[in-house]
Amino acid sequence: MTDDVGATGNAAPRETGERLARAVAGAAAEVAGVAFLRPRLSDLLRGSAAAARLRRGPAADRGPAGVRVRRDPDTARWLVDVQFTVRRGHRAVDVARAVRAAAERAAGGLPVEITVTVAGIG
């Protein structure tokens, strides 16, 4: 990826978190064996009245589907949760390891704790 997330300079934590989420999502989506990143409920309900309510406020800018990022206030580490579906014919454990490695590279040196969840096989 060309987006160097680790070079934050004076960027606000929120902006850094948003860049981190986009970088991790892009890196994870490019891993062989990833069918798609798991969409949030608001992504699935797009266009409905319920989706409009879910998109208001701070939940509206949570970042790309399949990736949740938040900052641990005690350790200042970024907690990154990646959820995806594995393509049929690929070993879930191998794809999960590759997604974790890609996410770590995408973090660009930021202190991160990455959780990878295989949400399905498709």
Rank of each mutant, 00 (worst) to 15 (best):
I121L: 13
R46I: 01
D61C: 03
R14Y: 09
T115A: 15
R77A: 15
I121T: 14
G47H: 11
A12T: 13
E104N: 04
T2I: 00
G109H: 09
A60W: 08
V69N: 14
W78Q: 06
D4P: 10
R77S: 10
A92W: 11
R55C: 00
A23W: 07
G108F: 01
L110E: 03
T115D: 13
L110G: 02
A107T: 03
A103I: 06
A92S: 14
S42Y: 03
G120W: 08
L45M: 13
P111S: 15
D74G: 07
V118D: 09
E113D: 15
A107G: 08
A98S: 11
G9D: 09
A76Q: 12
G47T: 02
R77M: 06
A59Y: 14
L54D: 13
R22C: 02
A27R: 09
A76L: 13
R38G: 00
R87V: 09
R62C: 00
T85I: 00
R38T: 08
R40K: 14
R22G: 05
V99K: 13
A52K: 14
R97D: 13
D74I: 00
P39M: 04
M1G: 10
L44W: 13
R70N: 07
A32C: 00
A28W: 11
D61Q: 11
G122P: 09
A29L: 12
R53C: 08
R105F: 07
I114C: 01
V82N: 02
N10Y: 13
F36S: 02
G109E: 11
R71V: 09
D94R: 09
A96R: 15
I121Y: 13
R55G: 05
L37D: 09
W78E: 05
L110K: 04
A52D: 08
L45K: 12
E15L: 15
E30K: 14
G63V: 11
V69W: 15
A29F: 07
A96D: 10
V112N: 04
E104G: 02
M1Y: 01
V116C: 07
V93I: 06
R68Y: 11
R38L: 10
A21M: 06
S48V: 05
R14F: 06
V31S: 11
V31G: 09
E104D: 09
G6P: 13
D61I: 07
V112W: 10
P39N: 02
G57V: 10
A65Y: 06
P39A: 03
G122T: 14
A11L: 15
A7Q: 15
V34A: 00
A7W: 11
A59V: 04
G120M: 05
L41T: 10
P58L: 05
G6L: 09
A27S: 06
P13L: 12
A49N: 08
L45Q: 04
D81T: 11
A101K: 05
R62K: 01
L20S: 12
V67T: 06
R40M: 02
Q83D: 07
A50C: 01
T117G: 00
R38V: 04
G57N: 15
A76D: 14
P73A: 08
G47R: 04
G122K: 11
G122R: 06
E30W: 00
R62L: 11
G33Q: 10
F84E: 00
G89M: 06
